[in-house]
Every structure is written in C-alpha cells, then in structure tokens.
Simulated scan of single mutants.
Amino acid sequence: MAKPQELGGYDGEVTAACERVLVTVLSGLGPWKESVYLVGGLVPRYVVKARPPEVPPHAGTADVDIVVDLALLADTAAYETLEENLKRLGFERAENARGQVVNWRWKIKAETGVVLVLEFLADDPELGGGRVQELPTKGNISALNIPHAAMVFDLHDKVEITAELLGGGGRITQVVAHANLVSFCCLKAFAFAQRHELKDAHDLVYCLEHSEGGPDAAITLFRSALEGKHAAAIGQALVLLENHFCDPKPEEAYLRDGPVAVARFEISGDDGEAQEARILRQRRVADHMGDVIRALKLGGGA
C-alpha cells in the first residue's frame, strides 16, 4: 500500500474516515486509552485550528499512528482486549513497505471501499530505531519502535473528536491526546531524515506555518520545551531541521532538500508555470524555517 507522493493523491473523506478508526479503537480500550497518544499525519488537523480558505488545505492521511505506553504493552488484559476488538471490527494484519505481513500494522476496508491503516508505535530505549517491539503476548499485536516517540507523553495537547464508530455503532465523542507542535515537528524531523518522504516535510512545515500564534508562538513553545527533560532530543531534531532547511549561504537555502521536498509534494506538473511555482514555494519555506531556526539558536523572537 504505497503512499501518495503528492498533495493531490490524498482525500479529505479518507482523513475523516481515519478519525472514525481512531475513536473506535479508543472506545474499546477502557482506562488504557489514557496511555495512547496520536502522532503522524492526522495530527495537523488538530495542531492547526484554522481551516480553508483561511489557510491552505493540509494533505490529510490514510493512516492512524498511535504511540502506546510500554505499561500498556505489559498488561495482558489490555492488549488481549485490544486484539479481540480489532478482530471483531474487521481489522486484519497489514503489510509493511516490503510486502511482509507485520503485527504492528493493521488495516480495515471502510464502507466506501478505501483501505485504512492503523499503526502501533512504541519507544523502547533499549532497542534500535525501526526495529519491531514485540508485545509480551502470544497474540498478534506488536508495536514498531520509534526512538524519541515517548516525548509525546509529556509534549501533547488534547482535543475532543466526535465521529461515527466503525460498524454502525453510532456517533461518539472521545478525548484524544495528540502530539503538540513541538513533539510533532521533532518526530517528523527524525522521520524525514531517516526515510526522506516528501509528505513528512509537508506535514511539519504546514504546522509551523499555520499553527495558532504564528512563528512567535512556535518559538515560545520550542524554547519552553528545550528547558524540559526532552531537551536533548529536541536539540537533535533542530539540528536536523537546520541541515535540511538552511544553508551556509542563506540565499541558497531554497535549494536544500527540505524546501524542495515540500514544493515537490504540494505542486505537481512539469510545465514552466509549475516549476516557477515550486521555486517560489521553496523560497517561502526556506525563509520561514530559517527565521524560526535562527531565532531559536540566537534565543530571540521571530
């Protein structure tokens, strides 16, 4: 199930369906839903409060990525209940990028026929990045280890989401804990550096450009987080952002792979007009990211 490589390949109705997956899974976790945190491509929907036409549309997603607390993974009743609920709802194990069926990735076909994906992530410091964190169970659920993902346990916001349960169970409202601007951008920075997917660059830049309060508010959030226990990881992410979005020659920062990735994802076409639009977008991204990163390095405002 290859992901679209451009903005036009995503569908707002599919993103809304992902909300249904999220609230349905949470509804079956009982008290353990307090140990589940949303990350990934559904998060910009909540980090950015404004909607088009006030802001450009975000791509959305066809995946639901949730980080689970290791304490949940160690509770037999919790993960057995989760597995039973997934199977009852019609979920089945999904394939990874190599076409191998894995236990941390599950899929379901919605009423519209679109396939929605649910991914379980964890952060075990004793494992290397990208390795599968097997749950202590004889069942069929595991989680993919994502270094630094645990920062979302401390750096998150909450939102009420109302959506229809899968399977015709009616409408429900769930309180969802999701990555805040800082943890989301950091995790996306690590992801972009590792796999270089164009959408990762789009996701993080979109949130930094359009989150409430603008650059000053974003800088304030980052500066506050840099005083906390995740300062080292955030510092590493900022170094990556600088490497991918800034250049020793500021006037050439638009040529870095970060701005190029954003423009390639958002603007398709090979004609001269599209090429000019991509260059303009690259320059705007480079300027915005450069302003934020320089302000954080200097300790000043935007």
Rank of each mutant, 00 (worst) to 15 (best):
Q236E: 13
L240C: 02
E252C: 03
L238W: 07
G228I: 01
C246P: 03
R223I: 11
I234C: 07
P259M: 08
L238Y: 07
Q275Y: 12
E276P: 02
A263P: 09
A237R: 12
L240R: 09
D257K: 07
S268W: 08
P250G: 07
I267S: 09
D270Q: 12
V239Y: 10
G228V: 01
D216A: 14
L238D: 06
D247T: 02
Y254G: 08
A225K: 08
E242C: 05
F265C: 13
C246I: 03
V260Y: 12
D257F: 00
I279G: 00
G258W: 09
E251S: 15
A217T: 04
G258M: 10
D257I: 06
L226C: 11
K229N: 00
L255W: 01
H244L: 00
A261R: 00
V262G: 14
E227N: 10
A225Y: 06
L241D: 04
G228H: 05
D270P: 07
D247V: 01
A225L: 09
A277F: 06
P248F: 02
L255K: 12
A274F: 06
R278D: 01
Q275K: 15
T220L: 11
G235Y: 09
P250D: 06
T220F: 04
P248E: 02
L280K: 14
D247N: 14
H244M: 00
H230G: 02
F265H: 13
A218Q: 06
E266Y: 03
G258D: 08
A237Q: 11
D247S: 14
A218L: 02
E242V: 09
L280A: 15
A237N: 11
R278A: 04
K229D: 04
E273I: 15
Q236S: 10
D216L: 07
R278G: 03
I279R: 08
L240D: 08
G272W: 00
A277S: 13
H230E: 10
A253Y: 03
P259S: 10
E227T: 11
E266V: 13
I234V: 11
P250L: 04
G272A: 05
P250T: 08
E276F: 04
G272V: 00
K249Q: 11
R278Y: 01
F222W: 10
A274S: 15
A237Y: 09
R264Q: 15
G258K: 12
Q236D: 10
A277W: 07
